[in-house]
């Protein structure tokens, strides 16, 4: 069974870390990640850019509505995610609209990825 671990933290606090503090946390995480890599168990890992860089496509309306900012509703739950290579935000929105036509309702939050490691688990 593959498990996803979703990371939550106060963004303002994490953005207030100094370069050194950030590097220290990343260094400690890397120790754990390296062990998992050696064991062949680590899948993709992504560090997302801040929510200020996010755009949300609400697909409960037709045509879907594009809203600045992260997905903020609490009545819906996170059910999955995609990682897609896109030329620009408009490209990502087009793909999200295509996906939305196949599966209307709910929302997609489109969030640029800052750091991505493809990993090898389940390969």
């Amino acid at each position: 069974m593959l498990y996803a671990i979703l990371c939550y933290h106060d963004e303002a606090t994490v953005c207030a870390w100094t370069k050194e503090q950030d590097a220290a946390v990343m260094g400690k995480l890397k120790v754990v990640q390296d062990r998992l890599i050696k064991e062949g168990r680590l899948g993709p890992v992504a560090r997302l850019l801040p929510t200020t860089a996010a755009t949300t496509l609400r697909k409960d309306s037709d045509p879907p509505l594009v809203i600045d900012g992260p997905f903020a509703e609490t009545k819906e739950q996170l059910l999955g995610f995609y990682v897609i290579e896109c030329a620009a935000l408009d490209d990502a929105l087009d793909i999200a609209r295509d996906l939305g036509r196949a599966n209307p309702g709910g929302s997609y939050e489109i969030r640029p990825i800052g750091l991505f490691m493809p990993g090898s688990a389940g390969a």
């Binding site: 850019l49 408009d90 640029p112 750091l115």
Partner: peptide
């Protein structure tokens, strides 16, 4: 990293 975030934001703004 800063460039990626900056490009994402200007992309959003231009829309």
């Amino acid at each position: 990293g800063l460039i990626a975030e900056g490009l994402a934001l200007i992309d959003k703004a231009m829309r």
